[in-house]
Simulated scan of single mutants.
Amino acid sequence: MFNFDEIVDRTKTPCEKWNKYKGQDVIPAWVADMDFKSPPCVIEALQKRVQEGVFGYTDIDDETYDAMIAFVKRHYNWEIKKEWILFTHGVVSSMNIACMAVETASVMTTTPIYPHFIKAPKHANKEVLAIAMKEENKRWVLDFEAMEKAINPTCKLFMLCNPYNPAGTVFTCKELESLGDFCLKHDLTICSDEIHADLLLNPETKHIPIASLSEALAQKSITLMAPSKTFNIAGLQASFAVIPNAELRKNFKRTMGSMVGGINILGITALKAAYLEGDAWLSELRVYLAANLKMVQDFVSKNPKLKLLGQEATFLAWIDASSLHVKSPYEFFVQHGVGLSDGEPFGNKNFVRLNFGTQKSVLEEILKRMQKAMDSL
C-alpha cells in the first residue's frame, strides 16, 4: 500500500503550482501536476543515479527502450518499435514541432482545449480551426458535422487530445474510428496528445491510441506520450513521440533540429524506473483519484448552479459555472481561497478547471471553501 494521504509541503521549493498564490490564503488547484510523491521506485532510481555524481552527455540504453515498448504493449495493446520513438523535452514542445513539421496552412482541433493546442499552430503561423465539442449522453464528444463544415483543402493536420483535457473524456473505439475515417478522407495527419492515457478513473474504460487502430492511421499519426502526468515527474521533462511513418518521422526530427537538445539524464532515469516498476503504484493512484473525483461530483451535485459532465480520466474536473452569473468564476473562487484554472484560456470563461490530484484532506478543504463561496450567493 502506498500513502497518498501524506502531505508534502511544496512551499519549501520554487514550485510553480504553490508559488502562484504565495503569501495569500489561497489553496492552488490549477496547473496539472499532483501533490503526491512519485513512486518509490522512481525516487530510488534517481537517488542511485545522483550518487554516481557525474551528469555528462548520456545515451538511452536498450533496456529503457524495452521498458517503454513493454509498457505501451501492456497498457494499450499497441506494439511499437524502437525506431519509431523520438525523445523530446515535453508534449508542449512536441505539439509545436508537429505544427511546423507538417505542411499545412491551417490546423484543426477542438475546444475547449488545453491552451497550447491553440498556441502551437499560431506559433507556426498556421490558421486554427477550433471546433466546439458537444454534450451528448452527459459526455463531451466530437461534433463531426461541424468538423465537416469547417474543413478546407489547406488543412492537413488534426490535433487530438485523448484523454481529453480539460473535460476528461476517453474516446471510444467507435469515436476514434469515426475520427480516423474523417482524417483519412481529408488527408489529415493526426497529432495525438495522449499524456493522460494512464490516468483512467473507471476500471471498465480503455485507452486506445488512435494510431493502433489501423496501418493507414499509424502512417498518418504522431502520438505524444510521457510518464510525466502519470508518475508526477513533469519537472524532469522526459517525453517522446511515436511516429511509425519514416518520412513523417524524418520531418519531425529535422524540425526539432538543434532546438531540442540532448535528453535529460534524470528524466530518462525516472521514465525507465516508472515504466519498469511503477504499475502497482499506478493502480493504487487510480483508485485514490477516482475517490477524489467522487468527492468533487458529490459537491457539484449539491450545488445546482454548477455542472460537471461524466468523466473517465485525468485528475482535472471541468466545471460549468455559467449559472453563477458572475463576471469571472475564477476570480470568484480565488476571493474565497481556492485557485482554480481560469476557463478562458481553454475556450470558455464561464468554466473553471479543478485539479483534484491532491491529498484527500487538502481536497476536503478546497471543497469546503468552494461551498462557502456558493453559500455566499
Score class of each variant (00 low, 15 high):
Asn3Ser: 11
Phe4Asp: 07
Asp9Ile: 01
Cys15Val: 00
Lys20His: 09
Tyr21Ser: 03
Gln24Pro: 08
Val26Tyr: 11
Pro28Phe: 15
Val31Asn: 09
Val31Thr: 10
Phe36Pro: 10
Lys37Gly: 06
Lys37Ala: 11
Cys41Ser: 10
Gly56Cys: 11
Tyr57Ile: 00
Ile60Ser: 04
Glu63Ala: 10
Met68Gln: 06
His75Val: 05
Ile80Ala: 09
Val92Gln: 11
Ser93Val: 12
Ser93Asn: 10
Ser93Arg: 07
Cys99Ser: 10
Ala101Lys: 07
Glu103Lys: 15
Val107Trp: 02
Thr110Glu: 15
Pro112Gln: 15
Pro112Phe: 15
Pro121Thr: 09
Asn125Gly: 08
Glu127Thr: 03
Leu129Tyr: 14
Ala130Thr: 04
Ile131Val: 15
Asn137Val: 00
Lys138Met: 03
Trp140Met: 06
Asp143Arg: 02
Asn152Asp: 13
Thr154Gln: 15
Cys161Lys: 10
Glu175Lys: 07
Gly180Leu: 12
Ser192Pro: 00
Ser192Glu: 13
Leu200Asp: 01
Pro203Gly: 03
Thr205Leu: 02
Lys206Ile: 08
Ile208Thr: 14
Leu213Gln: 05
Ala216Ile: 07
Leu217Asp: 07
Ala218Thr: 02
Ala218Leu: 06
Thr223Phe: 15
Ser228Asn: 13
Gly235Lys: 14
Leu248Pro: 13
Lys250Ser: 11
Phe252Glu: 07
Ser258Leu: 14
Val260Gly: 06
Val260Ile: 14
Ile263Asn: 15
Asn264Lys: 09
Gly267Asn: 06
Thr269His: 01
Thr269Asp: 02
Ser283Ala: 09
Tyr288Thr: 09
Leu289Ala: 02
Ala290Gly: 04
Leu306Val: 00
Leu306Glu: 07
Ala313Phe: 13
Ala317Leu: 03
Ile319Ser: 08
Ile319Thr: 03
Leu324Tyr: 10
His336Ala: 05
Leu340Gly: 02
Asp342Gln: 02
Glu344Met: 11
Asn350Gly: 04
Val352Gly: 01
Val352Ile: 15
Arg353Ser: 14
Leu354Ile: 00
Asn355Tyr: 04
Lys360Leu: 03
Lys360Asn: 10
Ser361Cys: 03
Gln371Asp: 05
